[in-house]
Design a protein around this nucleic acid. Structure first.
Length: 348
DNA sequence: AAAGACGTCCAATCAGCGAT
DNA sequence: ATCGCTGATTGGACGTCTTT
């Protein structure tokens, strides 16, 4: 028996950046390097207190807005079963079935605890023999602005996500986000795709997997909770479609202002979005969201550096850039008071 | 049993940096 | 120019638990 805990230990935190000598110099300085902090209920996390308050309590989490959501495709054999087009994939699968040499098939020929190449080869051969191979070839949003096709057959694809494929068939577009992210890079984990996303669409890190929120569920119904739809409709005063609701959410999710302001919360769970203030607010946000959506599907003539998820990109569509600015400006005008929210006093 | 969720861990590769 | 080191990136393996 060590008695009851009377006093918590003093916790101090520092993270140093730079070269070795810079770090040593920083450590050698007299002034304190470490930041003291207190842990906070309920989780008593060993991290300095959040700099800012999180989402306001009445904002609604994305997974509440859109009840059907799933992780993206995880093939475990990208090289073999993902291809730029159907012909390439079909020919490659023929080579796989026939045992013809092809460096792209190396993974598919390597056994692992969860994968038997011999069985996979048999399964593919039989698909080809029955003329059914193409029934399993689907488009995939592999990486940002890099759509491809993949073979959604369980013999070769670790997680083909059958239900997600069905959703994708019904959905005009799909929102892509993540549940959490431990990294230190800015939170930029939001995209709109035409096809169902790969698990690593936003980031290859397994702790930060992409999740698809299709606007229609696997059956083809609007993928929005009845509660949320009713709440929005009573505020707006008329029926709203799945597309409109999705665009409304997009007008928040795509804003870098929003992403930066709530970065701490976004690292721990899904984004949250408030109900609209009124009819006009809803309509304006829907129209901003529509332009963001168009921007994601437009050609990319702008030579500029930006980040989507953890992927640095070198080109951007002019439509998207304009819509992003519009998004930020609107967020600022609507939620300026939240942006001014000062960090709590931190002891040093 | 299969599919889904969600972690840890791993290997290959590469970039930056200071030292040799 | 090369070497060793750190750390990030990338694509994946797999354990464990839950849900279907």
């Amino acid at each position: 028996d060590h008695g009851e805990l009377v006093e918590a230990a003093t916790l101090r935190y520092a993270r140093l950046f730079g070269s070795r000598s810079e770090k040593l110099a920083r450590l050698a300085e007299r002034r304190p390097v470490f930041q003291r902090f207190r842990t906070e209920e309920p989780h008593l996390v060993f991290e300095p207190a959040r700099e800012r308050s999180g989402f306001p309590p009445d904002w609604i989490a994305l997974d509440e807005w859109m009840p059907y959501h799933q992780e993206g495709i995880q093939t475990n054999r990208d090289q073999a079963i993902i291809a730029p087009d159907v012909d390439t994939l079909r020919e490659r699968m023929k080579r796989f079935a026939e045992g013809v040499d092809d460096p792209a098939l190396e993974r598919a020929r390597t056994p692992s605890g969860h994968y038997d190449p011999a069985r996979a080869r048999e399964a593919i051969a039989s698909l080809i023999a029955r003329g059914e191979l193409e029934q399993y070839i689907f488009p995939i949003a592999y990486r940002p602005f890099d759509d491809r096709v993949f073979l959604a057959h369980p013999s070769v694809c670790h997680r083909p996500r059958k239900r997600l494929l069905e959703s994708g068939e019904h959905s005009e577009f799909i929102l892509v986000s993540v549940r959490k992210d431990r990294g230190i890079a800015a939170y930029r984990h939001f995209a709109i795709t035409r096809f169902i996303p790969d698990n690593s669409y936003l980031s290859p890190r397994s702790s930060c997997r992409s999740r698809a929120f299709p606007i229609k569920d696997p059956v083809g119904n609007a993928n929005f909770s009845a509660t949320c739809v009713e709440a929005v409709e009573s505020i707006v005063g008329e029926r709203v479609s799945a597309e409109e609701l999705a665009c409304y959410l997009v007008s928040y999710l795509a804003s870098e202002r929003y992403q930066d302001r709530f970065a701490d919360s976004l690292r721990h769970d899904y984004p949250k979005i408030p109900l609209p203030r009124g009819r006009e607010n809803f309509q304006q946000r829907v129209s901003i969201g529509e332009r963001i959506k168009e921007g994601f599907f437009a050609p990319q003539p702008l030579d500029m550096e930006w980040t989507l998820g953890h992927h640095p990109l070198k080109a951007k569509s002019a439509v998207l850039e304009l819509a992003h600015r519009e998004c930020d400006a609107y967020f600022e005008s609507e939620w300026g008071s939240l942006l001014e929210d000062q960090p709590p006093e931190s002891a040093t």
